[in-house]
Structure formats: C-alpha cells, structure tokens
Amino acid sequence: MTSTDVVDAEFGMEFDEGNMCVFDTSTGEDLAPAAQALVHRLFKLERVVDGSLGGMRVVKLPEGVTAIPREKPVPKASESTKWEVFAKEKGIQKKKRDRMVWDEESQSFKPRYGYKSRKSLKDVPVLEHTSDLADGENPFTKKKRAVKDLVEKNEKKRQANEKKSRRKGAAPLPSLVEVEKGPSGKGRIPQKQLAKSAKIAQRSTASVGRFDKRVGSEADNPQPVAQRRKFDPVSNDGGIKVERKRALKIAERIFLPKPEPVQEPKEGPLGKKAKKQRKKH
C-alpha cells in the first residue's frame, strides 16, 4: 500500500487512537472503510517489547485527543508538613536507612527500633548513674520518660500538621455544636449551644465528669445523666399503704365528677382598648 493509497483510504476521517475511535465525515453508507482505516492505524502503533507477552502483539495507545470530562475534580495536593518545608529549604533528601544496625555491646545486628532493638532496656541489668541525674533519680525511669515525652511531642506535631493540611470542603470533624454563619460571614457558635455542648462534654468521661479538672467559669457539678429509679417498698407494712394510695388516686380520677372550670368573665367589646385607656389616664 503506497502513501497515496493511505491518504485516499483515510479521506474525510479524523482519528483518536487513544480512545480507539474514528470520526468519519465522508459521505457514503459503508462503515467498513472507517473501521478498516482505524484498525490499520492501531496496527501501526508502537509495539510493546516484552518477553513475557509471548506471541502477543501489544501496542501502546497514545493519549486520547478528544477531551472527555473527568468524573471527579483534580485532587488538591496535600499541604507539606513543617518538616518537609524545612527539609526542602535545607536541601535534605530522604535516605533509606537499614532496619538492622550493628550493636557493639552485644556484637550482633539488632533492629534499629522496636522489639529487641538496640534501644530496648529490657536486657540491660545496670545503668550508670550519670552526673545529669538528680540524687536518687532512677536512670531507667528517666530514659523511659524521655521516650514517652518524645512520642507525645511527635503526636502533637502530627496533629498540628494534619490540622494545617485539612482540606477545604472536606468532611468536618464531628462536633456537638452546629456553627452558624454570623453577620460578618464568619462561623459563630451560639451561646446556648455552647453551654449545652459543654454540659455534654462534662459528663462524657468515664467518671461522668466527677474527677475532671474545672476551668474558669465551668460549673462545678455536672448534671447527672439520669435519675436513679426508685422502687416502692416491698415490705408488708409500708408497701401496701403506698399501693392503696396510688390506686385510690386513679379511682378518684376516673369515678369522681370533674370540677367544672370556672369561667372568667369575658371582656366587653371595649376590652383591652378600654383597659389601656384607663391606664393612660
């Protein structure tokens, strides 16, 4: 097939190989020429060279030409953490560190952190009482506390980073209060709601707020969640009395005639107006 033949065969056609699609504007009823031209175009695409394909003839599809809308918007890049900003400024590059490190003391490879790690104090029988320790201070507890402090510090930083990078329009954190828009357009929590949610928060601990620290104007006694159920005494002397009383009350309500409601004298046609005028004088 010569190049002029190809031009003739593809007359009035536009191709979008990425979408395996052809737009044939030529007149004529037959669909086969367009189909043939498209298949030939696909056959001429660059082959994928890969031994694992065996005898398969696989071609690479180019990107589609026809603009087709996405189903969801382009994701926003998450904000870089404080460390990432710092590292970029300083030109620090991430390096992969080995998991196992040589430990001089035990003359063996040990994990850098975690179970059975070099840092583990589990197998350390004795620690030196260094000069930075106070009198009587336990070096073991000090080391343990240092690790705990570090974990706490990292967690705080992680939360700060997360807060910073929380996307606009993302699902908000569950809140007890609904923020309404104030006149300035900023979020505003109504006073009443705030008080209500504070009350809920107060009794949301395991001790129902009994042992919580109070801040400033916070009420001292959180309200009880529910009242305890009270049962009538079951003993012969007290119980029967109470029961009889209650039964009588019900019987009265059913059998005794209702007292007629006392009708208040209606106000005359002048009614309120007259009253008002009287007040004025």
């Binding site: 699609c21 994928v48 398969m56 003839r57 696989v58 690479k60 599809l61 087709i68």
Partner: peptide
C-alpha cells in the same frame, strides 16, 4: 456517547 462506548481506560491493547 464516546464516554459511554469507549469502555475501560487502557494504555496498551492486544491487537488480537
């Protein structure tokens, strides 16, 4: 119609 008919996204196709 192209969106409906074009099927799965593919970067490579087997000619067979």
């Amino acid at each position: 119609l192209l969106d409906v008919f074009r099927g799965p996204n593919a970067s490579e196709v087997d000619l067979a």
